[in-house]
């Protein structure tokens, strides 16, 4: 599934930064050699992409029209999986959960912009330390993140509820209560992506020429006005890039859901999971727990479709708000 969505970005994101002029096939002997060598150099990556990404996409499409036996072997069933899928309330619920989760995680994008602006404050002491602290969750194994947060959210022994009790709020079973579980995982989703987005934003901020600010200051613009008239428009390509990547990542969420809302190690089912499954989690359950791989492939394709549509909408909408300097 990751394969599927990554392709759609990889193919389209460069376009956002301006399409390079297409080079025509070389005609001279030297030019042709150079061209061949170029091909040879991209061959390892290209082959890898073909074998591990592009081929599985078509394979998945094919499997979505099949039904699987318990241990492999499949028969063609036509559109049966898709027909079943359209009437499956579980799929609908999972789609809704996925969209809610993604919406919440996208709220982290402005947060990371603010953080980037703060960290870029000239003369800030220990900026590198802050940067490392915010970036740490990005480079930490999701498995470890999930385990630690599951403990932090523990209703009886967790740190979150302990802190809440200090200010007189009685806590909840954040990851075992169907009412809160999705929001609790979205907080972790934001926490895990904010550092990465912050670094990209910070790079974008550094790319804005200082002259603009100096000119604006001469014209009498205050810091707030400068932010909205210079920083924001100049950062819009970065913001667009981040929004597209973050939403695709969030739509494919699996790890934090599996780790925080999955069954615990004594194999007891979490009472919160059935109301809060996301699409990829549902895909995992159908493919690997129920071993209904054909149906799971169909679910994966529906997600691909959703991501594709949302990404196309984002690319359409960018024309209204993204400024390329």
């Amino acid at each position: 599934m990751t394969a599927v969505a990554d392709q759609s970005v990889a193919a389209e994101v460069p376009a956002a930064t301006g399409r390079p002029a297409r080079k025509r096939r070389p005609t001279t002997v030297a030019g042709r050699w150079e061209w061949l060598w170029g091909l040879a150099f991209i061959a390892p990556t290209g082959l890898g992409l073909l074998v591990f990404y592009i081929w599985p996409v078509f394979q998945t499409l094919y499997y979505s029209f099949t039904e699987w036996g318990a241990f492999g072997g499949h028969v063609w069933v036509g559109t049966e999986n898709y027909v079943k899928l359209l009437g499956d309330p579980e799929v609908l619920k999972a789609l809704k959960n996925t969209l809610v989760y993604s919406g919440l995680v996208l709220l982290g994008v402005p947060v990371s912009l603010v953080l980037a602006a703060l960290i870029n404050t000239p003369g800030l002491r220990g900026a590198a330390v802050y940067r490392v602290l915010y970036f740490l969750p990005v480079v930490t194994m999701p498995a470890a993140v999930g385990m630690v947060w599951r403990w932090l959210y523990n209703g009886d022994l967790g740190l979150v509820n302990h802190v809440l009790s200090l200010i007189g709020i009685s806590g909840q079973h954040w990851v075992a209560d169907p009412r809160f579980a999705l929001y609790a995982t979205a907080v972790v989703g934001v926490w895990m992506t904010v550092g990465y987005n912050m670094v990209i934003f910070a790079a974008g901020l550094n790319g804005i020429p200082r002259d603009y600010y100096e000119a604006a200051e001469l014209d009498g613009a205050g810091r707030i006005r400068q932010f909205f008239s210079i920083t924001l428009p100049m950062l819009s390509p970065t913001a667009f890039f981040i929004t597209v990547l973050t939403s695709i990542g969030a739509l494919q969420v699996f790890d934090v859901i599996y780790l925080m809302l999955g069954t615990n190690s004594s194999a007891l089912r979490n009472p919160a999971i059935d109301e809060n499954k996301t699409i990829v989690f549902l895909f995992y359950e159908r493919a690997f727990i129920d071993n209904d791989k054909g149906y799971a492939a169909a679910i994966a394709f529906v997600l691909l479709l959703v991501i594709l549509v949302l990404t196309v909408i984002q690319f359409r909408a960018q024309k209204r708000w993204v400024h390329y300097a």
Partner: peptide, 12 residues
């Protein structure tokens, strides 16, 4: 304990 408590902290 409730099932929520036992999901957070295993019975054993």
């Amino acid at each position: 304990p409730t099932i929520q408590q036992m999901s957070d902290t295993e019975p054993a």
